[in-house]
């Protein structure tokens, strides 16, 4: 039973990691139906920014908590500005073009950003400082779940709740939903569609940066390539949960995390990905719109 709980909690952490990145995917898709492949790279850039800021602050002798706060803030702001710029440069000019063009543009942006960080920084793996505090009261349970893992799970829940609130109960959220439903009609009703889309990218990128800081700090290392694999898995999670749905992204992440964890624990880690993607195929056969996705008629 203890083994089951350990696997369950391990899967929960892994699922939260996927979910934290998947939230950004699903938000952008929900509003403009674009799979933003550069999202994984935003996550990576967020982590790199935090690493650079944290290294400088450590040299300057700041204490741990202020390093965590300032580094995360810088990462969020920096990543958000990247998200904003990418949308303006790579997606906005293609808004009237066939959807495939924007998709290719997104893939290009992803490759560009990876190589930019590779050249501007390094191809090596870099150690990432443990920015998250270690709670004393969790110490006896550290062999089951560490403080960092608890923080990741809680942050994912918090971000999901905040995004749900934003979309359901604020003016901006209303504008987002209107834009998602019918962009032209929203424009006619006085919604500043460009601004709404920009905001979506900023918020999506900010959540990716939060994920980047927490996950890199938990794993303890980064390089320019981490965004790619995390991005693919998070994208899978978003599709599994129903792309476009915020709670769906989190549920999808969890389902994927648990599947992988239990497959490794009870069968074999050789087939971890086989189980994960078999599950994806099965769910999409029986619920093509994903677990929590709403089936909508395709827009023309």
């Amino acid at each position: 039973m203890e083994y089951f709980i350990e696997l369950f909690l391990g899967g929960l952490t892994r699922g939260s990691i996927y979910a934290l990145i998947a939230l950004g995917y699903t938000m952008v898709y929900g509003i403009i139906e674009l799979i933003n492949f550069a999202h994984g790279e935003i996550y990576m850039i967020g982590a790199f920014t935090a690493l650079i800021v944290a290294s400088v602050l450590t040299l300057l002798g700041f204490n741990e908590l202020s390093i965590l706060v300032i580094a995360s803030l810088c990462a969020v702001i920096w990543a958000a500005s990247y998200g904003f710029t990418i949308e303006k440069l790579a997606y906005k000019p293609l808004r009237k073009a066939p959807r495939l063009s924007a998709l290719i543009s997104a893939i290009g942006m992803s490759i560009f950003l990876q190589n930019y960080v590779l050249l501007a920084q390094t191809s090596d793996f870099l150690p990432f400082p443990a920015l998250m505090p270690e709670f004393g009261f969790l110490e006896p349970y550290a062999h089951i779940m560490s403080s960092a893992e608890v923080i990741i799970v809680l942050t994912t829940a918090l971000v999901m709740a905040a995004l749900t609130f934003l979309i359901k109960f604020t003016r901006l959220g209303k504008a987002m939903r209107a834009t998602a439903q019918d962009r032209d009609m929203a424009l006619l009703s006085g919604v500043n569609v460009n601004r709404v889309i920009s905001f979506t990218f900023i918020i999506g990128s900010a959540t990716a940066a939060v994920g980047g800081v927490l996950i890199a700090s938990h794993i303890g290392m980064i390089n320019f390539y981490i965004g790619f694999i995390a991005g693919i898995k998070a994208f899978t999670a978003a599709v599994l949960g129903g792309i476009g749905s915020v709670p769906g992204a989190v549920l999808g992440g969890m389902v994927l995390g648990w599947t992988e964890s239990f497959a490794t624990g009870y069968v074999s880690s050789d087939y971890e990905d086989v189980f994960a993607f078999t599950l994806l195929v099965l769910i999409l056969i029986f619920r093509p719109e994903g677990i929590l996705g709403r089936s909508t008629t395709q827009k023309v």
Binding site: G10, G11, R14, Y225, I229, K233, T264, S269, E272
Partner: peptide, 11 residues
């Protein structure tokens, strides 16, 4: 390249 290896560590 997986994000973490907690399951294999438990195993």
């Amino acid at each position: 390249g997986a994000v973490d290896y907690s399951a294999i560590v438990q195993k």
